[in-house]
Simulated assay, not measured.
Amino acid sequence: MLHHPATSSADPDESGPDAPDSPAPAFLARYFSRIGYDGPVAPTLDVLAALQAAHIAAIPFEAIDALTGAGIEIDADAVDAKLIGQRRGGYCFEQNGLFLRVLRAIGFDADGLLGRVRWMLPDDAPATPRTHMVVRVRLDGRFWLVDVGFGAAVPPRPLAMDSVEAQPTQHESYRVTPQGEAWQVAARIEEEWRTLYLLDDVPPPAIDYEIGNWYTSAHPGSHFRHQLIAARTTSEARYGLRDNRLTTRLVDGRIDRRYLTADEIERVLAEIFLLPVRPHWRPAIERAATAEVVG
């Protein structure tokens, strides 16, 4: 049976993505400046939703350091230096690890969960590794799923975990369904429910994040080692880059797809995904420009 622990994740580890940050006021000020947030600061649902929306609009999803072989570290200092100090993006362990520390510093009752990505896979596909981190928040006895690190299909607002009904957003509708000892999170895309991931119900120890991050960033089977991927979601549109294909999905339903040259990829990384493009990315960008994107 699914259960919800009353406290935050057991076994916190200073080196993990949910490590505490101190001092909290200075940390929060840097974070709020990074995402352009100047609203109220209190553990409420409205604040949670506002922070989530500001975060995914300001900090893009990207895994360029995995693609170039630079590697990805998920301890608090490394994540803060990269996502806040260098104004880079990141993937789930970085993004949701940062967001979890922000929420805890504000006073939210929050913990992390791990899951298996099922996005773009058939239902009968073999089990995938536990490589996706999300945040679970408890407010007034209700549990909410919050995710700021799932690329172009990231939920744009908190999702109630006590309802199996469709939950509309300004983009797609989502639903969270109990599946035995797990949760199935799905989005309705082009009139079809598509599973994003299956989440374990129990917060993991820090070592599980480390293992998941190693697989995602370094294992030869990880698609981040072979594809240039970036995403950003605003209130008006979703932007997704997969190698040389840029897809823009507007909230009114219009979809635009374009294929880019290497110079155009560099330009959209800077202008659409707000990234400080580095010279050593160029070989990976040139490979992406000649890729044949399938699907």
Rank of each mutant, 00 (worst) to 15 (best):
F224Y: 07
E236Q: 11
W183E: 08
R254S: 04
P155S: 10
P204W: 12
A105D: 08
L241T: 01
P155G: 10
R258I: 04
E286I: 05
A187I: 08
A63K: 10
P178S: 05
S33L: 11
A29R: 11
P122D: 09
Q184T: 13
R118A: 04
H132P: 02
N96H: 05
D46Y: 13
R267Y: 06
I255D: 03
E190M: 11
A166F: 12
W183K: 08
S173F: 10
D46H: 15
V176C: 12
V294S: 08
L83V: 14
Y174C: 12
V117W: 01
G36R: 09
D162A: 09
Y259P: 00
P178A: 06
A105E: 10
F93S: 06
G85Q: 10
P279N: 09
R104Y: 07
F27E: 06
D252L: 03
P283S: 07
N96M: 04
P220D: 02
M1D: 04
V148P: 09
P178R: 08
L121C: 04
I265M: 04
P17S: 04
V137R: 05
R257A: 07
I265E: 03
R101Y: 06
L199N: 02
Q179E: 15
V185A: 06
F150I: 05
D252E: 00
G39F: 14
A127M: 12
I255W: 00
I272D: 03
A58K: 14
A53P: 12
A10K: 14
R238M: 04
W119A: 05
R34C: 07
D77H: 12
H280I: 04
P168G: 12
T131D: 05
R188K: 14
A127Y: 04
L103W: 06
E264W: 01
L2F: 02
R232D: 03
Y174D: 11
R278G: 01
A230Y: 00
D147Q: 06
N96G: 00
I64D: 04
L139P: 10
A166S: 15
I35N: 09
R30A: 13
F32W: 13
R175S: 11
R194H: 13
D140Q: 14
L145I: 05
E14W: 06
P40E: 15
V251A: 07
V154K: 02
F150A: 04
V146T: 11
F108G: 02
A10H: 15
V164L: 11
H4V: 06
P20I: 13
H223F: 07
V202W: 03
V268N: 02
V102F: 09
M1K: 03
D124G: 03
R130C: 06
